[in-house]
Amino acid sequence: MKNMKKRILVVDDEEGLRLLYKEEFEDEGWEVELAASGEESLEKLENEPIDLVLLDIKMPGMDGVEVLRRVKEKWKDLPVILCTAYPHYKHDFGTWASDAYVIKSSDLTELKQTVRDILGKKQ
């Protein structure tokens, strides 16, 4: 059971942020997979067990809203946290299917708490 760390897939086109999230969430005790685009994230989801998706909305190519739609179509119960710099997406119907909506901030406290709430206590 010790090796059953929960695994987060971070989807963000910004390299710095991917790296930051990886380190921060690994410190939190999660395993972290990275995807630099919507397309890559779907590929990873097909091939690897993922417990939670942290999804940026504004990305070149397939955006987060579209990824969210496809994820919820295929893996209905997989939690998705939408994470974006843009508060106005909150009014976009497409984002309503997400399990949480977090405005990006350099202070990751809220985001980490949201992840803990969804995945349960740190293991």
């Binding site: 910004e14 710095g16 930051l20 921060e24 710099a85 990006k104 901030s105 350099s106 202070d107």
Partner: peptide, 9 residues
Amino acid sequence: RNPLLSIGG
């Protein structure tokens, strides 16, 4: 925004 988040983070 994004670079700023990186710096802060």
